[in-house]
Amino acid sequence: MTRLGRLLEKPWIWSFAGALLVWLAAIAFTRGYGAGGMVTAALSLAVFTVIVGIGQMFVITLGPGNVDLSLPASIGLASAVAMKVMGGNDAMVVVGLLAALGSGFLVGSFNYFLIRALRIPPIIATLSASFIIQSVDISYGRGLQIKPPPGFADFTNLQVLGIPVLAILTVLFALGAAVLLQRTIYGRQVLAIGQNIRAAGLAGVPVGRVRYLTYALCGTLGGLTGALLAGYFRGANVDIGNEYLLTSIAVVVIGGTSVAGGKANVPGIWGAALFLVLLLTMLNTFGVSAGVRLLLTGLIIVGVITAAGGPKSAR
């Protein structure tokens, strides 16, 4: 088989191809004006989607019914926690980041507590948890208008040769996540549970522990995203994570991870995140109205999922 043929068999190649296509369409419209700027902007925004997408990917890989719908609330809470702890002081950045991670970790643990102890299906548990978290966030962050420390805000916007530093770090992070998934005991156990939870238990996989770790991991990554978003957009906000409810799930599916569980794909998440961000950029350059933009985004996501995921899941 040729090298190209092997490359075309990878499920993630299509999301990158899609990203390239919408980028080309956008610069064809502007006659090449702003091509580089679009890539830089796309990389900066894709970072956040990739981080939450990876968390969501691990959860979805646990098998049918597993999904974390509390991510937006968790992101919102962590952004407030990070900004309050940092208090605009550059010396407190690390402490603030740790506090945001801790807040996300607690949210993830709480989700799993609801799922396990109260035997609520994950989709209901995480959705109801998100209402509780949001209420906590509103009362905790009341009147909060704290700016991020200038050093932190500059760092989240830092670029080297037009490439955001955060994007480079996130590529490294994604590599780490791929190794975690394919080459560690934890990753293998997640994949086993997703394929057949009963067989996994009988093959000696500590099912409860692995599921707990996965929800906690997803929450923690939501916490990290919350802090980074607050730095990037220069302020915390209850609604800062709202768009990640749909996009975190969309990038997982477009990226070639199986919704039925047991099969995951990390590179595809990068491709899918770039695709979604560039899609918005393209529609913006075309100058379509907000309503049409949402409609087209929805239709394109449905189309891509049907085209990319259809034949694979049919068997």
């Binding site: 293998r188 994949l191 086993a192 394929q195 057949n196 009963r198 067989a199 996994a200 009988l202 093959a203 000696g204 996989v205 199986s258 047991g262 099969k263």
Partner: peptide, 18 residues
């Protein structure tokens, strides 16, 4: 089918999981 096999995995991954 119910208690043993991981259907998306290779033979060697199925042997190694334990």
């Amino acid at each position: 089918q119910t208690d043993g096999i991981f259907a998306q995995w290779s033979i060697s991954e199925n042997i190694g999981i334990r």
